[in-house]
């Protein structure tokens, strides 16, 4: 480690590789489950890298590393504990919390939108224009009047007629 503190990359890589076994054994002693041992190793290696200047070469490297590994093992255990506490178990979640909208609802909504679009396409030109400008593009009456060259009264009448036609057509179909 003294060589690593001086910047020797090869010595550092060798040291970290040799440290993995000790980190794992410390984590196991702390009660970390086997499937999360690698998390502790990763966290410990990152911490070792960050605080490598705190190592005193006159003292034991193993004691220094073990203390960091034990701390990181506790951190990992705590974070896993929190996550398990917060998240519900999958099977239980599927049984008791079904999606409010399942896949068929989405499909149905898409179908309805298509039917509406088809119905609008079949409207007489004046009525279609009124729906497109006022309903779909959300223009004001004045803007729509300017855009189409019709007066606002005619647009209003056309929109009302269009809505009535659509209502009849869609309800009549379903």
């Amino acid at each position: 480690m003294a060589a690593a503190q001086a910047g020797d990359q090869r010595a550092y890589a060798r040291l970290l590789t040799a440290s993995v076994a000790l980190i794992r054994s410390v984590a196991r002693r702390q009660g970390v489950p086997v499937d999360t041992l690698d998390d502790v190793v990763q966290e410990t290696l990152l911490t070792v890298h960050r605080v490598r200047h705190t190592f005193d070469p006159t003292r034991s490297y193993d004691a220094w590393l073990s203390a960091i590994a034990a701390r990181r093992a506790i951190d990992v255990l705590r974070s896993h504990g929190r996550r398990e506490h917060r998240e519900v178990h999958d099977e239980w979640a599927f049984d008791t919390h079904p999606d409010r909208d399942d896949a068929s609802v989405g499909a149905e909504r898409a179908q309805e939108a298509r039917r509406l679009r088809d119905a609008i396409r079949t409207l007489p030109p004046g009525q279609r224009e009124a729906v497109e400008q006022l309903g779909l593009k959300e223009q004001s009456l004045a803007e729509a009047a300017q855009h189409t060259g019709r007066n606002t009264g005619a647009l209003k009448v056309n929109l009302h007629r269009a809505l009535k036609t659509l209502r009849d057509r869609l309800h009549g179909e379903s």
Binding site: A4, G7, Q9, R10, L16, T17, V20, V41, D56
Partner: peptide, 27 residues
């Protein structure tokens, strides 16, 4: 050393960015 093989990528990355550090003076 198969356990260490899992962490080879991290060890290589840490080694690559190793810079000399000033040691902490004794307490």
């Amino acid at each position: 050393m198969s356990e260490a093989a899992h962490h080879e990528a991290l060890i290589d990355a840490l080694g690559a960015e190793l810079t000399p550090v000033r040691r902490l003076p004794p307490p």
